[in-house]
Amino acid sequence: MNTLTIFRRELKSYFAQPTAYAIIVIFLILSLGLTFTFGEFMRIGDASLEYSFFFWHPWLYMLLAPAIAMRLWVDEQRNGTIELLGTFPVSTWSAIAGKFLAAATVSLVALLLTFPIVITVNYLGSPDNGAIISSYIGSFLVCCTFIGMTMLVSAFTRDQVVCLIVAVTLCTLMVLGGYEPVTRELAKATSPATVEAVTAFGIWDHFASLNRGLFRLQDFVWFASFITLCLVGTSTILSAKRA
């Protein structure tokens, strides 16, 4: 109930400022632009969109998700409104959930607005639409993971720049972590255990199977536990800061 109130305020605030529009437009330009240029969408005729379109999403999210989510607790702490929120009859948990859902909604809007590409592949060929849907789900989960991560970072600081830099760095590590060329190099230089640890932290493993239309329980568990961990961490940090 209060989660909904917080959610509505945050969402309104995204669209009352240029933030949401700017991020949505940048995402659309880059994701579609990369698909038709470096993705070589026309030449390789990748009707599943896996390599031409969805491949780019983690790279865009590692920059854009922190831009969406950094203000969630940074602004609250900088403006002191956290003191209002903390004395309203709203649990920390409702506030966290409401804010997270608002940021996730902004990214969902951006993602759904890429629908022309789906229409295009269906017009040009006969793609596996099931795989496209599961890719969209995977893409959204990756974005939510980065939003959760950024939210956790935003609980630590009242400085937007610090939050953005730290969050982008962590998200970049998560993208590079499981990225095939990186793991290959890493395998040459370090032990298999290290490679495994780095891959486990990365998103590709989980994203890739959804990209192929595979709904594996383990991937959903991974995304859900990572996001939950970030949100619980946020709550812990916020309470610890007040004590």
Binding site: G80, I82, E83, L84
Partner: peptide, 24 residues
């Protein structure tokens, strides 16, 4: 609160309506 914190991106009316929602 001492510093009278407010959500700067809202209007006065919008802010008070939000607070009213919070207060059920």
């Amino acid at each position: 609160p001492e510093s009278a914190p407010l959500y700067n991106d809202m209007t006065v009316m919008g802010f008070l309506k939000f607070c009213a929602d919070v207060r059920k």
